[in-house]
Design a protein around this nucleic acid. Structure first.
Lengths: 354, 354
DNA sequence: CTGTTAGCGCTTTCAC
DNA sequence: GTGAAAGCGCTAACAG
């Protein structure tokens, strides 16, 4: 009797190219060529092969294909978390662009831990991803810089590349491409918007010293103030530990207990602005009647709150990251590989002229 | 002169296990075993190998490893989009649990297109993912059922498995596991909450006939009404095309033009509720003073709006999906593989007793 | 304990 | 046009 005839169903074995070849009565080389596309073949053979493929519901083994030299096709994205709208939108952009270029998307989250980031990047290296895209805000200290340089070189050494999103560039000797937003410009624009409406005492809530994004935004704020000849008052700049709504609420509440010497608030992002708004409302101050409020990012809950804010093209960031990573493959490596995406202000209903 | 000595940098070749073996002066088998862990080896050899691995910054080639039989380690998740908070939270859960089990997470979005779903599932098959997790709301028609059965069998045939999240089960002959929420129970609970507060004319906004989730929720609504002896009035059930905020707004606005014969609104989800709220406010009706409002999901913007809603453990859904998929590997296949996750009501400040 | 060797499934020269 | 055969990098029997 035939082997494997007994009751135990043989543990699922994937149908291989060999099965297809046998079914079509051709060699595996022929099957490979026909499936590969660009290759001459007789219509008769071709249809027999295709029929076998269909009947057997054959799909290639991506691992075998990758191993045998065919360029692998995957983009890796590494971020803090997927639930934050900021990251989610960037991830969506990455995924969309990757799919359009017929590439698989590998995803890993780090929860902000450098250790998990390292592990994740290593994992992506194992998978030989075409590119590894790192997203997110970070303190650009020496430890960060050397870690990134390490990633960049390791990836470059195996023909992959590192893309940094919303993070500061690393220097010319590091083989990484950077895509970021114009934080300073956007912050300058909204601050000017407030200043034009007559506001002079503008609270900045949610600064996080050291974080490049934060530094960029507060610089725009200060520059705009200076441009309008408004003296800089450090007491109006409130730091927070995170950019979560709760922090905006907490810090604003505490400040309100001491002083109300301001007419407008600039939240470092929309979440902070939402928290600020809550604190104001609880204090009996209405937006925009009593206090004007602006945010940054144009993500939920900006629209729900009718918040004037700065629109940031998050999804475009993701797409650009993929595009850059892939296009630079054939490019000359002399190019800087640093792109800054513009932002624009979105006027809703949270600012009042005084 | 040596080959490859000229200017052109040889196209990045990844360092292989052979390089490590050579550097450490051992065979590749030894390297493989030492890196594999569970295997005896002399400390001396071991340290030499580890040193070489470190010096060369070697990482295994996941494709080669997968090809040579070592069980691949990846979980695929397929969803409409990552930017919707609903999907984002589920994805986060999947990713977290996958990482904990030391597995890579592949992600694909379909934008709701069946065609792209098919393509994505095929892609995941090529990658030989341990499991393919399909998330999201869907009309459970025959076309859907046969498509899922096809996926399930194809995946099962190659030792993988299909997991359906928030979708109806397929029947006992289809090798798929299902994880969903108790939509009916949650809807029953919030509706009862409104009824207990004295409301009798309760508008249900956002029904989508045919969608299993929607059917479950409206059933809970109707059952609760019946339990309180309130007659069912079909005119109070408003359909929408999607569950987007804009649809809630539009439908509510239209309804308000004709009638205001209700004291409470149940939004099919929080987004719908947010739109409803906007329409109410524009009409001069305040929440909860004039109209009570509840939602479903407990996702943003529920908290911002102080919305009483039903908390749904989205992240847990993702984790459970991974757990089920992986644990059933060794399990007996007789088990149904159908899990229903419970929900609970979250009382905030959008319901008033009358 | 360590080395040799045979594949895993596929692509790709090289012959025919 | 098509087939035969040589690897891709790794793991897992087999020897030693």
């Amino acid at each position: 009797m035939a082997q494997d005839s007994a009751g135990t169903p043989s543990p699922a074995r994937r149908t291989t190219i060999r099965d297809v070849a046998a079914a079509a009565g051709v060699s595996i080389a022929t099957v490979s060529r026909i499936l590969g596309g660009t290759y001459p073949s007789s219509p008769a053979t071709r249809s027999r092969v295709m029929r076998a493929v269909h009947d057997l519901d054959y799909v290639v083994n991506a691992h075998a294909r990758a191993l045998s030299g065919a360029t692998s096709k995957s983009i890796a994205i590494v971020l803090n978390s997927v639930v934050s709208p900021y990251y989610a939108h960037v991830a969506q952009g990455v995924q969309t662009e990757a799919a359009q270029r017929d590439r698989l998307c590998l995803i890993g989250t780090t929860g902000g831990s450098a250790e998990r980031e390292l592990a994740t990047v290593r994992l992506m290296r194992q998978e030989s991803a075409d590119a590894v895209i790192l997203v997110g805000n970070v303190i650009a200290d020496d430890s960060y810089r050397s870690r990134m340089a390490e990633y960049a070189h390791a990836l470059a050494a195996s023909g992959s590349r590192l893309v940094l999103c919303g993070r500061p560039p690393l220097g010319p000797d590091v083989p990484a491409v950077v895509v970021e937003f114009d934080n300073t410009g956007g912050a300058h624009a909204v601050t000017s918007h407030l200043l034009s409406a007559g506001h002079r005492r503008i609270l900045y809530v949610g600064h996080r010293p050291g974080y490049s994004t934060s530094e960029g935004r507060i610089t725009g704020y200060r520059d705009a103030l200076a441009a309008f000849g408004v003296p800089h008052d450090p007491a109006l700049e409130l730091d927070t530990a995170s950019l979560a709504r709760a922090d905006g609420y907490r810090v604003m509440k505490r400040y309100l207990a001491g002083s109300t010497d301001f007419t407008a608030v600039f939240g470092a992002n929309d979440q902070i602005a939402a928290g600020v708004r809550q604190a104001l409302v609880e204090k009996g101050l209405r937006v925009p009647d009593d206090v004007s409020l602006v945010g940054y990012d144009d993500l939920p809950p900006a629209e729900d709150l009718g918040l004037t804010t700065v629109h940031v093209p998050h999804e475009e960031l993701g797409r650009t990251a993929v595009r850059l990573a892939l296009e630079r493959e054939s490019d000359d490596p002399a190019e800087p590989g640093h792109v800054v995406l513009g932002t624009h202000i979105v006027v809703r209903d949270s600012v009042r002229r005084i």
